[in-house]
Design a protein around this nucleic acid. Structure first.
Length: 580
RNA sequence: GCACCCAUAGCUCAGCUGGAUAGAGCGCUGCCCUCCGAAGGCAGAGGUCAAAGGUUCGAAUCCUUUUGGGUGCGCCA
């Protein structure tokens, strides 16, 4: 059930009726017609811009169209008034019974209330995290993991067919660095003195990997040149790192469907195939790049190489696909990787990247556009930095001093639920402050707590009701007469509930899961507001003297809890039943 | 130098494919527990939506320019 969609459908039908009567011309575009809650509740329950949108193409005055539309809409039993206002808004009021049906519908459908079919089974691939397999994940990866996971859940809830995917960068030179670092730890495990030079990873997390290597190969690789062990150690080391990363993701509650290995593209001809197909379209050519301007030109030398013509797609420079030594640059396997995604039948690709990948966006979009002739859309979300605080003081992170904050640190300090919700309170292109103390604070400034508290309060009321021996199951609560839910404060809360499916669609359409967190905070505020109204007005309390009088109010409260559960479910957060 | 992102209340931020008098929390002022959890709520003060143009019946939202901040710019991934 989606009340706003229902009423919008009614508006569209009414426009069609006017068209068939000749009052409006045929062939009008109706997509821009919206039905929204008015900013000011005094304007009514819902407002539509239909008359204003249609005025120009229909060559009629907006208020005239609105008047005609009002007449049609009034014929529907759900609509009790339709007033033309301002430049041509049509403000609608609905029969209270329509609103009272909302909590009933929520209790009957459960957390599926708000699910949408807008995705229509569109196959979407959400690629996120994709952290290099060279060490444990840090706090920046955590934001990517959380936003990507919530994005995937949101789209699934909105009717898309979603695949969660991780691209493992296990093909490049950094893996050599990793392997050499593990080799040093391996020597150390054999009691040798080692030194971690620049260009190796000195982190402690490789100590057990070195020990495991000793277990596996014994002393066979001692005093051997790289040719003997490097190739095999690459695989051994990345496997160990991916195990670490999977465990980190699991600690956050993130589960991937696909781990795609960059390495798996090498030696199969697929990179060459992808490059050739772009050459055939004259999008990859042999040429030289201009010297970058305004940058220190220390050792720049002009060189001919294979270049991707990304300037044809609005990029400011063409991009090389090969390194100086003839090996593929990172970009080449990534082209093949995105071709692979397309070939797996995805209609929409979403990549969640860190802000430092900003320069990469245009060329990657260009690749997908070129390959699919624009059929498949690639949306890239760039996540801004997470700024860490402790007690309001910036929390310094330094890899050199070994004080960088890992994802695991965050989960252990504040818990996965708190980390997840908080990371989703800001849109992705805004930087995010994360204060280890504030995010666990139990006060209304902390949205995680605020929403959880609303849910716990409702659970508390239902427990009290159950203590009275009253029925609190959804079927009984929704089965009774909800006609007494007529107070403005109660109807206001119901309107908020009715807005949930709409917010889901907006969030899914814009690929912005943070809107779910924002909505939940607003819903919680409305719940707390109504709750306190009960201090002054006993008739607004959820618990009344009799079971019969309480039942509609409990149904409303329970409906709020269901929607909070649904929303938290999308965010991957567990609703709590009591605060401790 | 160029590209991308950002700029909304004193502070931190929401703001719907453009819609009516721009919202919330913190902070400030004043209130509300004999009462389902006050871990909460109500009311008040606080705004040139960075600036200037443009498109539109209508702009915080779209376009252009400017200013300020962040990120990136062949042989890292």
């Amino acid at each position: 059930m989606n009340l706003f969609a229902d009423i919008r459908a009614l508006v569209i039908d009414s426009v069609a009726a006017l068209q068939s009567e000749g009052a409006l011309p045929e062939g009008l575009g109706l997509d821009a017609i919206t039905v929204e809650p008015p900013r000011d509740p005094l304007h009514g329950d819902m407002a539509t811009n239909a008359a204003m949108v249609l005025a120009k193409p229909a060559r009629q005055k907006p208020r005239d169209i609105a008047e005609a539309l009002a007449g049609k809409l009034m014929a529907d039993p759900r609509v009790t008034s339709a007033e033309v206002a301002g430049p041509g808004f049509l403000n609608l009021r609905l029969d209270p019974a329509v609103w009272q049906a909302v909590p009933r519908a929520i209790l009957q459908t459960g957390t599926g209330y708000g699910r949408s079919v807008m995705g229509q089974g569109t196959k979407v691939n959400v690629e996120y995290v994709s952290a290099n397999p060279t060490g444990p994940m840090h706090v920046g990866h955590a934001r990517g993991a959380i936003v990507g996971d919530a994005m995937a859940s949101l789209l699934a809830y909105a009717g898309y067919e979603v695949t969660r995917e991780y691209y493992i960068n296990d093909g490049g030179g950094q893996v050599d660095t990793l392997a050499r670092s593990v080799y040093l730890r391996y020597l150390e495990a054999h009691g040798r003195e080692v030194e971690f030079a620049d260009g190796t990873y000195p982190g402690d997390y490789l100590v057990p990997v070195g020990a495991a290597l000793k277990e596996k190969v014994g002393d066979a690789w001692l005093d051997q040149p790289e040719e003997v062990w490097l190739a095999e150690l690459r695989g051994f080391a990345t496997d160990a790192m991916m195990e670490l990363i999977r465990a980190d993701l699991a600690a956050l509650g993130v589960q991937m469907d696909v781990f795609f290995s960059e390495k798996s593209l090498y030696g199969t001809g697929r990179i060459e195939e992808a490059i050739d197909s772009l050459k055939a379209k004259d999008l990859i050519y042999w040429g030289t790049l201009p010297k970058p301007k305004g940058k220190a030109d220390d050792d720049w030398e002009e060189r001919e190489q294979w270049l991707f013509r990304s300037t044809a797609f609005g990029d400011d420079e063409d991009r090389p696909v090969q390194k100086a030594d003839g090996a593929w640059a990172y970009f080449a396997p990534d082209i093949a990787y995105h071709f692979d995604k397309v070939s797996r039948g995805f209609d929409l690709l979403i990549n969640i990247f860190g802000a430092d990948h900003g320069g990469y966006v245009k060329r990657l979009k260009a690749v997908v556009q070129a390959y699919t002739n624009g059929r498949v859309d690639l949306d890239i979300k760039l996540l801004q930095l997470v700024k860490l605080y402790k007690n309001g003081e910036p929390f310094k992170m330094s890899k050199r001093a070994g004080t960088f904050v890992t994802l695991r640190d965050v989960v252990e300090m504040v818990g996965a639920d708190v980390a997840r919700f908080h990371m989703l309170t800001r849109k992705s292109d805004a930087p995010l402050d994360f204060d280890f103390d504030k995010v666990v604070e139990q006060s209304k400034e902390n949205p995680v707590f605020y929403v959880q508290y609303a849910h716990a309060r409702i659970c508390s009321v239902l427990r009290k009701a159950a203590d009275e021996g009253w029925a609190t199951d959804d079927a009984t609560l929704s089965g009774g007469d909800l006609g007494t839910l007529g107070h403005e404060a109660e109807l206001g809360l119901i309107r908020k509930l009715a807005d949930w499916p709409r917010q889901v669609e907006i969030a899914a359409r814009t690929h912005e899961p943070h809107r779910i967190a924002t909505y939940l905070s607003e819903l919680a505020a409305d719940l707390h507001g109504l709750w306190n109204r009960g201090n002054d007005d006993l008739s607004l309390r959820f618990l009344q003297d009799t079971e019969a009088a309480s039942q509609p109010k409990l149904a409303l409260a329970r409906a709020v809890a269901v929607v909070i559960s649904a929303g938290l479910g999308i965010l991957g957060v567990t609703p709590v039943e009591e605060m401790r």
